[in-house]
Design a protein around this nucleic acid. Structure first.
Lengths: 243, 243
DNA sequence: CATTCGCATTGACGGAAGTCAATCCCATCG
DNA sequence: CGATGGGATTGACTTCCGTCAATGCGAATG
């Protein structure tokens, strides 16, 4: 009956609005920080690690831009399956919604600084809107790319893509640069296997096996569990399926 | 070696820019239509069925809004795997890109009317930008929802979700309305099994089997291959995984 | 009417990835 | 230092879905 695709499930959402359980780690971590004049109508805030900035179903009266750190946006199915729908880094915009409520939850992966804007203020400031739009368009492209990953890539390709995505110079999937030499790189993942799995549409076991397979092939070494040394960036790049 | 996930593949893209083959059905179908004054800086155009409006890798100097009809946006992997990343209907915006080239291809499913805007014109018209933003935000939510489908749903759930998405009154996944009575509905899919498969991250055989399974369970009847009669909308809704 | 062509359906089979469960590896802490 | 616990790894088994191939079906065409 229940699909075998269910993966490791999260505590079931309590009601039909898909609000995640309050038992999730971390809690409100928003701390107002003295207003900075560079951000005209926004309010700069500091958020602790593993804290929720908002949850699916909350009233969407504010939107955010990430100054530094990393945030993940995720959605839950009522039976507890989770999908991380976006990974955000500095500059990215989140909390936009066409509806009066947020369509997903936002949780920090590390301590972050964000700028919070009133939703109405954004709509009334053409300048602000234009600046944010550029970021939104980039995120649309990233979502398209991620749909390809989720819909068409094998587990190994997904993990390889994810690792490449974490390589500093080559972030954002544009790893087809002219000099794709066999140089190495060290990558900090900053996410647990479970979080990676929920981002890649896999289970944590499959993610772990993929890492082991990459290690077995001599493409990576796993130094400190969260730290991956990519021996041959070029070979890794070819495993992503995009080249 | 080659992942078993490769599915039925399309003619391999010719170069590293992932430009789809010119052999794809349909061709340039843009026909300028007399300027209408309701659309300040846009140019209204008619596009034939199965025509490409732009292709992945083309210079992204224009963006579009769909007036009526249906368009699909897709991306190709170099080995020919295809993923339809968005299905667009009236009002939706497409052709935005953070890069100077389009990140995906746009092909009409039926004859359409579109409004084409110069990219620069949009960026300089606050009013236009604001109006389009609302649609973009809705599309972001749709992409999030689709990521959940691709990452976490079974084949049957994917197909059920797709069919529900086509039910007129309940489009856009908001099928949890108060009166979810056992009423029936007739749905025009307007896509081949292969196109549906490429949208849902499946193969056409799996899509076909899912339809057969739904028929076997008495939930739908397939009248004219493209026309599905949903006997019990409520039961169908429960199969989507979202309820 | 018979042919053809594109698409859909169905079956048999295999493999990639999910499930369940045991073990391992650190980091933290009493 | 040993105990504890959260995460990661690995193995055995299962299953969903992809692959390959045969057949069906309706529309268009000669």
């Amino acid at each position: 009956m229940k699909p075998a695709i269910a993966q490791r499930s999260y505590p079931a959402a309590v009601d039909t609005t898909c609000r995640p359980p309050a038992s999730a780690r971390g809690h409100v971590g928003l701390q107002p920080v003295p207003r900075r004049e560079e951000e005209p109508q926004g309010q700069r805030q500091r958020v602790g690690q593993h804290a929720h900035i908002f949850r699916e179903g909350d009233r969407a009266d504010r939107m955010y831009q990430l100054v530094d750190g990393a945030v993940m946006l995720y959605k839950l199915l009522p039976d507890g399956r989770r999908q991380v729908v976006e990974l955000l880094s500095a500059g990215d915009v989140f909390g936009l919604s066409a509806l009066p409520v947020y369509d997903c939850s936002a949780e920090t992966l590390v301590a972050c600084n964000v700028i919070a804007y009133d939703r109405t203020a954004v709509e009334q400031s053409p300048d602000l809107l234009r600046r944010l739009s550029a970021h939104v368009h980039a995120q649309l492209c990233a979502l398209h790319e991620h749909a390809v990953l989720l819909g068409r890539k094998s587990a190994l390709e997904r993990v390889a893509t994810f690792v490449m995505h974490c390589v500093p110079g080559r972030g954002g999937f544009n790893c087809a640069g002219p000099r794709c030499g066999g140089d190495s790189a060290v990558v900090r993942l900053g996410m647990t296997r479970q979080e990676i799995a929920d981002y890649l549409g896999l289970t944590l076991e499959t993610v772990s096996r993929a890492f082991s397979e990459l290690r077995r092939r001599g493409i990576i070494a796993i130094d400190k569990q969260e730290e991956v040394r990519v021996h041959d960036v070029c070979r890794m790049c070819q495993l992503t399926g995009a080249h």
